[in-house]
Design a protein around this nucleic acid. Sequence first.
DNA 1: CTGCCTGCAAACCGTTTGCATAACC
DNA 2: GGTTATGCAAACGGTTTGCAGGCAG
Lengths: 146, 146
Amino acid sequence: MSLNGIEFKGLLKEKGFKLTTQRRAVLEIMQDHKGEHLTTEEIYELVKERCPEIGLATVYRTVQLLESLKLVRKLNLDDGCCRYELGLEDEDHHHHHLICEECGKVIEVAEDLLDPLETKIEDLFNFKITDHKLKFYGVCEDCLNH
Amino acid sequence: MSLNGIEFKGLLKEKGFKLTTQRRAVLEIMQDHKGEHLTTEEIYELVKERCPEIGLATVYRTVQLLESLKLVRKLNLDDGCCRYELGLEDEDHHHHHLICEECGKVIEVAEDLLDPLETKIEDLFNFKITDHKLKFYGVCEDCLNH
DNA sequence: CTGCCTGCAAACCGTTTGCATAACC
DNA sequence: GGTTATGCAAACGGTTTGCAGGCAG
C-alpha cells in the first residue's frame, strides 16, 4: 500500500472528513510501524514525537476513523486494550496471529486457508461474510525449548 | 458434561481451591444457560436469584477461576465486556461464532475445519497449539432480507 | 484453627464525551 | 464563513484490589 497524502485526502473527502495534521501523523506512524500491534497509548507516544500538541482523545478518535476507512485493523490480543495494525488493502487475505500463552509473544501467520470454510458457512447460514478473525493460542518455539 | 458437585469439588481440591456456595452457584448458572454468551454482570444478576448475598467481585473472581479450570470459555464479542459460555469438555472441537454487524446477533457454528490448518501451522512455526478462536463478521439472513 | 474466600467500597484504567477554541476547505 | 476537528478535563463503565470479617477443610 502506497497511500500518500493525496490519496488519503481523497478518501477522507469522499466521506466528508477533513485532512488534518493529526490524522496524517497517525497514519504515518502506522505506516512506519507496519507489522507491529500498537496500543492506542503507544501510537499516542509515537505521534507526540512529531506532533507534540496532539491529545490522546484525538488519537482514539483517529484510529477509529482509520478503522472505519479500512486503513487500519483493530486487534484484540486479550491484554485488556485495543491494538491496531496497518490494514493492507492489497493483501488478498487477512493474516492471523499465534499468541504464546507463556511469554505473550505474537507471531504473524500469512497463511489463510479459511476460504472453503467461509463459502460453506455462507451457504449453510445464508450469512454474508465480510471479515473474519482467527487467533491460535499455545506455546511458541522458544518457550517449548525452555 | 455432567459435572456434579463431587467432581467439581475434586477438581478444585486438586488445585488447592475450596468449594464454596458461590462457586457452585456460578457454575450451576452457567450450566443452566448452556449455549448463551453471558456477561459477568448477567451472571451476577442470575446468581443473585439463588444466592442474593453474592457480590459482583466474587462473580468476577469465580468466572476467572472457572476459566482457568477450563470449565468455562471467555468470549470477546467486541461489545466492550467479557462474556462466558460453558466450555464443554466432551466437545471434540470448539465451535465458532458468526457476528452480524447489522443487528449484533451471534450465531453458533458447530463446524470446525481448522484441523488441517492447525497441524500445518504447528509444523511451520514449531508452535504447540492448545486453542483457537475464530469469529466471522458479516450480515445475517434476517438483515440481508431487510 | 488456619488460611482461603467473600462482600464491600474504593481504586484502576482504557475509553468516551462535552465544550470552547482552532483549523480546514 | 461555516462546519468539522482538536485539546482538555471530566465522566464513564467494566474490572481489579485492599481489607476486615466469614467459612471451608
